[in-house]
Amino acid sequence: MSATAAPTRGSIAKAINAGLRAAMERDDKVLVMGEDVGALGGVFRVTDGLQKDFGEGRVIDTPLGESGILGSAIGLGMRGFRPVVEIQFDGFVYPAYDQIVSQVAKLYHRSAGRVKVPMVIRIPFGGGIGAVEHHSESPEAQFVMTAGLKVVSCASPHDAYWMIQQAIASDDPIVFMEPKRRYWETGEIGDAADPLHVSRIVRPGSSATLLTYGPMVRTCLDAALAAEADGLDLEVIDLRTLSPLDLGPVLESVRRTGRAVVVHEASRTLGLGAEIAARVQEECFYSLEAPVLRVTGYDLPYPPSRAEEEFLPDLDRVLEAVDRSLAF
């Protein structure tokens, strides 16, 4: 099959689709598997057209069982394949939890490095789409705290296109968190990729540092734009890699601004913000002008959708936290 030309512009969903296609064209051991990923193209159409072009042997509609998807993907990985599994929604990952945390995450270690697990676990995550229960959750911290997993999250079409290919090329298992409410946002796709496990300043500034990832990158950029009217110059860092964390750019930024606010949709207690706040105070104690603050989902089960706007961090909550930081 001749290689499809790389896209120059598109939505996050289309960019992941193009990235999957490029990875499958490059390596015939790459498989896509999950529920409804074939003829339907996935419930978000991220795998649209792949089964038509690569066949049912490489784009596999599985029976309906998340543990079965993950467990059989482990065996396929041991056989030399590179499975990219789709968990249809964040809240459906838990039936596969044992296979992910006890099997996928530990196999390389238990085998003393003899068994590689080159698997990508794609999870559309987060709220803001008015969905029913179990369709809007942010479980990333549970995978970040699991030794043996790497976790990344894309926030732009450019990163979506390149990061999915880098994750597939990795010989380690990677949980790939996709910001589902941003699937349809469009943007440029450049031809130069950053390494997978680096954080990046997406908006330079000097007043305070916003640290975020996934769907909240857009929210923080909007907040930074709004803050300009008040004469504030906010720096925004897209963490991109949640495990391992790449805190080099974060620490450098906080040493300059003296103030950090972590923003994520996931609940507060032991969310990414807790780890980041701990590490920032360990490394930047004498540079801090204020405590590291967190703007997060509350420690609630995800609420009914008509209350989710109140639950999710938004522009106003981010700016309120920035004000508290500046007033400290």
């Binding site: 498989l31 993950l70 993907a73 065996g75 396929l76 041991m78 056989r79």
Partner: peptide, 15 residues
Amino acid sequence: AQTLHAVGYAMGIGL
């Protein structure tokens, strides 16, 4: 847990 790994491995043989 290993029965699923066995099936996946066998699926690979089939593929």
